[in-house]
């Protein structure tokens, strides 16, 4: 028996919008720790890891570890039927081949339930060890989204370079080149407007902008984004989900021919 009641149902709606274009089908894993997911895109270039900790739910009952295979496009269709202020409860019985999403309006005058078919997904689970990164950049998530969108109108790849001068995003394409440099800036009114650069040593890596732009669909989940870079590892683009956990995107770099 599984029953997870999330008062801020809009979080789940935003999570689905953030990942449904990157991943088609995925197993949601439910354990005492929380509601989580790890999935790769179809070309195995990017990976998304989601964690919504059990403490973040108003009610969290998970009698035994359960993995539920869902088509994310179908799940998104169902969650779009929930209002932004609705409380969402996810329910499943042991051994059932369906999951139920229950939506309650804030004043309890409307209750809807949507039952979705589960699917068997033979997905590969990757171990992601803790790593020391050469550079970690925290910046406003809207700024990062703007840069990725702007650069993708010029080129297909972005070179992200961190030096003591700041973080530089560069691209080149048929019509020309573009460089955006963000310097550390902590003299801002609100902490989420700051750009903070922690650099152990300079690093420069190249990534496909198509994936970066896909990751920025998580922007509504968090005011800030944290980008971790090391020359021999995939980039990690992390959006913290307030009080609950995170959504992390990992992207393998491109290397010279």
């Amino acid at each position: 028996m599984l029953e997870l009641r999330l008062v801020q149902g809009s979080l789940l709606k935003k999570v689905l919008e953030a990942i449904k274009d990157l991943v088609n089908d995925a197993n949601f894993d439910c354990s005492a720790t929380g509601f989580s997911l790890q999935a790769m895109d179809s070309s195995h270039v990017a990976l998304v890891a989601l964690l919504l900790r059990s403490e973040g739910f108003e009610h969290y009952r998970c009698d035994r570890n359960l993995s539920m295979g869902m088509n994310l496009n179908n799940m998104s269709k169902m969650l779009k039927c929930a209002g932004n202020d609705d409380i969402i409860t996810i329910k499943a019985d042991d051994g059932s081949d369906t999951v139920t999403f229950m939506f309650e309006s804030p004043n309890q005058d409307k209750i809807a339930d949507f039952e979705m078919k589960l699917m068997d997904i033979d997905s590969e689970h990757l171990g992601i060890p803790e790593a020391e990164y050469q550079a970690i950049v925290r910046m406003p998530s809207s700024e990062f989204a703007r840069i990725c969108k702007d650069l993708s109108s010029i080129g297909d790849t972005v070179v992200i370079s961190v030096t003591k001068e700041g973080v530089k995003f560069s691209t080149r394409g048929d019509i020309g080149t573009a460089n955006v440099v963000c310097r550390q800036n902590t003299t801002v009114d609100k902490p989420e407007e700051a750009t903070v650069i922690e650099m152990q040593e300079p690093v420069s890596l190249t990534f496909a902008l198509r994936y970066m732009n896909s990751f920025t669909k998580a922007t509504p989940l968090s005011g800030t984004v944290t980008i971790s870079l090391s020359s021999d590892l995939p980039i990690v683009v992390e959006y913290k989900i307030a009080e609950m956990g995170y959504i992390r995107f990992y992207l393998a770099p491109k290397i010279e021919d």
Partner: peptide, 14 residues
Amino acid sequence: SGIQLSITEFYRST
């Protein structure tokens, strides 16, 4: 431009 590496080249199946 460039060769796209795969995520599975960095992280192994568990």
